[in-house]
């Protein structure tokens, strides 16, 4: 049996909000360590890897491994009915045909209970080896989101160029072009505002702006985003959860 209680529904609300526009159907794999998801978008360009470790829950138990096949839009409809500050408990039997979601407000005078039918989802599972990256950028997630939104107004592609101590986001469109350069920066008082660039080799990669604009829907989850890049390899965009992560592997564009 699975029983996982979040102190606040807001965490799962943000996670589902971040994923629902990229993937329609997901298997949520529940083990004693927590809940994990691997899902690939329909165009097979973006891979999402979610891990909500047991430590992200107030209480968590899962006696046997359970797979919950969930339709994200339906899950989102139910999740939106709960308040962000409600406690949220996920409950499923060992061979479940439904996931129960129980929202309790903190004064415990209101309990809302929902049941979501499960689906049999046949999905590929890709093996992600330990990847080697040539550049790692840690930066404020809100700043990364603004850059992705701004650059998408010009072109459907966004070029990321990293040299020693700066990252250049470059967009070349039909009616014009634009770029934003950010440099390494340490804010000792507000560390979440800092930009850190770790570089082994210079990077020049191009990505679909549409996918980057899906990834930035994770911005409310974490104040910083970590971007890991390697030439002609998928980029990794990572948002840390209190205990776990939401990762996006995005295939680049390049010439054959």
């Amino acid at each position: 049996m699975l029983e996982g209680k979040f102190d606040e529904a807001s965490l799962l609300k943000k996670v589902i909000d971040a994923m629902k526009d990229s993937v329609k159907l997901c298997n949520f794999n529940c083990t004693e360590n927590g809940i994990s998801v691997q899902a690939i978008d329909d165009s097979r360009v973006l891979l999402i890897s979610l891990l909500i470790e047991a430590g992200s829950f107030e209480d968590y138990r899962c006696d046997r491994n359970i797979v919950l096949g969930l339709e994200m839009e339906s899950l989102n409809k139910i999740i939106k009915n709960g308040n962000a500050s409600d406690m949220l408990t996920l409950v499923a039997e060992d061979s479940p045909d439904a996931l129960n979601l129980i929202f309790e407000d903190k004064r415990r005078d209101r309990i809302a209970e929902y049941s979501l039918k499960l689906m049999d989802i046949d999905q590929d599972f890709l093996k992600i080896e330990d990847m080697k990256f040539d550049a790692v950028v840690n930066m404020p997630s809100a700043e990364f989101a603004k850059i992705c939104r701004d650059m998408k107004t010009l072109s459907e592609s966004l070029q990321i160029i990293i040299t020693k101590d700066s990252v250049k986001f470059n967009s070349e469109g039909d009616f014009g072009s634009g770029s934003v350069v950010i440099k390494s920066f340490t804010d000792l008082e507000k560390t979440e505002e800092s930009v850190r660039i770790t570089l082994e080799k210079p990077i020049n990669l191009t990505f679909g702006a549409k996918y980057l604009n899906d990834i930035i829907k994770s911005t409310p989850l974490a104040s910083q985003v970590t971007i890991k890049l390697c030439d002609k390899q998928p980029a990794l965009f990572e948002y840390q959860l209190p205990s776990g992560y939401l990762r996006f592997y995005l295939a680049p564009k390049f010439e054959d």
Binding site: I40, R44, V45, L46, L47, D124, F125, L126, K127, I128, E129, S157, T206, G208, Q233, P234, Y249, L250, A251, P252, K253, F254, E255, D256
Partner: peptide, 14 residues
């Protein structure tokens, strides 16, 4: 011209 690659090109199925 640049071509969008598929994520499946980079990771093997298990």
């Amino acid at each position: 011209t640049l071509k969008q690659k598929s994520i499946s090109n980079f990771f093997a199925k298990t």
